[in-house]
Simulated scan of single mutants.
Amino acid sequence: MQRKTLSTMLSTVVLILVAISSSEAFAHAVAEGDKGYIQEITGTHIIAFMYLGAKHMVTGYDHILFLLGVIFFLYRPKHIALYVSLFALGHSTTMLLGVYFNIGINSYIIDAIIGLSVVYKAMDNLGAFQRWFGVQPNTKLATLLFGFCHGFGLSSKIIDYDISLDGLVPNLLAFNIGVEIGQLLALGAILILMGFWRRHTHFYRQAYSANVVMMSLGFMLIGYQLTGYVVAQY
C-alpha cells in the first residue's frame, strides 16, 4: 500500500513538472484566443469575464500551489475559511486596484515573487523557520501579504488583455467573482484529495517529501522568471 501511494505521488509530481515545463505555462501567459476576444469587445460582459477569472485561477498552477501549501496542515473548517479569506482579500484588493489605476509590475518580477510565496509556505510547513532561524513568521499576515502579490500577478494579466474602458468596473468585478469561483473549485478538489491522503498511516512522512517537492517547484518558478527577466533586458 505504501509503495503504491508513493508511486502515485511520484506520478503526480512528474505530471506537474511536465505541465509547468512548457513555455506557455511557465510564462503564465494570456491565451491568445482569450486575449483576441477581449480586445475586440466593448461594454459590459459579465459572464465572459467571470469565465476568464475562473479559468485563470483553475489553470494558475502557482496560485494553486500556494493555496495547497496554505491549507496543507489545516483541519478545522473555520481555520481553512480564515486563511482562504485572507488570501482572497489580498489578491482581490490588488487585482482590482492594480487594473483600475493601471499599476503595471513587470510580469517576470511579480511571478518570481509568487514563486517565492510557494517556497515560503513549503518552508513554513516543514518548520524550517523555527529550526533554522529560531523564529516563526506570522502565518496570517504572510498569507495576506502574499495574497497582495498574487493579486498584482492577476492584474498584470488583465492589463495584458488591453480591455476597453467601457464597462471596466463591472467587468473587473465579474472577473474577480470568477477568480473566487475558480478558487473555490480548486480548494474543493484539494480538500477532497487531502481528506483521502490524510487517512493514510504514512501521511506525515509523505507530507515532508511533498513539501520538499513544493519548495523545489517554487525555486524553479523563481529561477525561470528571473532568467526570463534578465534575457528580456537584451
Rank of each mutant, 00 (worst) to 15 (best):
T93E: 00
L168Q: 00
D124W: 07
L184Y: 05
I46G: 08
F203A: 00
D166R: 15
V179S: 02
M214H: 10
V13I: 13
F196G: 08
T143R: 02
G188D: 12
Q233L: 15
W197T: 06
F152S: 04
I105G: 03
K4L: 15
I109C: 03
M95R: 03
Y100D: 01
D34F: 15
H150L: 07
F101S: 01
I46S: 09
N102H: 15
D124P: 06
M50P: 08
A122E: 02
F146L: 02
S22V: 14
L184E: 00
V84G: 05
P137V: 01
K78A: 11
V231K: 13
L168C: 00
G127W: 00
T12P: 00
L82Y: 13
L191M: 14
L6G: 07
Y61F: 13
G43C: 06
M95V: 06
Y83K: 15
Q2L: 09
L217K: 03
D124M: 12
T59P: 13
Y229H: 14
I103M: 15
Y61W: 11
T59S: 13
Y75R: 14
L67V: 14
A112S: 11
V14Y: 08
L191F: 11
A232K: 11
M123N: 09
D160P: 01
N211D: 10
A81L: 13
H202Q: 13
M50G: 14
L144D: 04
G36V: 14
L141Y: 01
V84E: 05
S164C: 04
A174L: 04
T8F: 09
Y108S: 10
I41W: 00
F133L: 12
F152I: 08
G188E: 13
L145Q: 01
I163K: 04
P77S: 09
Q2C: 03
I113C: 12
Y234H: 12
A174D: 05
I41E: 03
G104Y: 05
L144F: 14
L116I: 10
E180F: 05
A210Q: 02
T12M: 09
F219T: 07
T8R: 10
E24L: 08
K55C: 03
A27S: 11
L144R: 08
G33R: 08
E24Q: 10
V58D: 03
G115P: 01
I16C: 10
A210E: 01
G153I: 04
A88G: 08
M50S: 10
N106Y: 12
A31S: 12
G53D: 05
D124H: 12
F73H: 12
L193V: 13
L17G: 14
H150V: 05
I71D: 03
L145F: 10
Q2S: 10
T94M: 03
M57W: 14
E24N: 09
L221C: 05
H150Q: 08
M57F: 14
F66T: 00
I109E: 02
L82F: 12
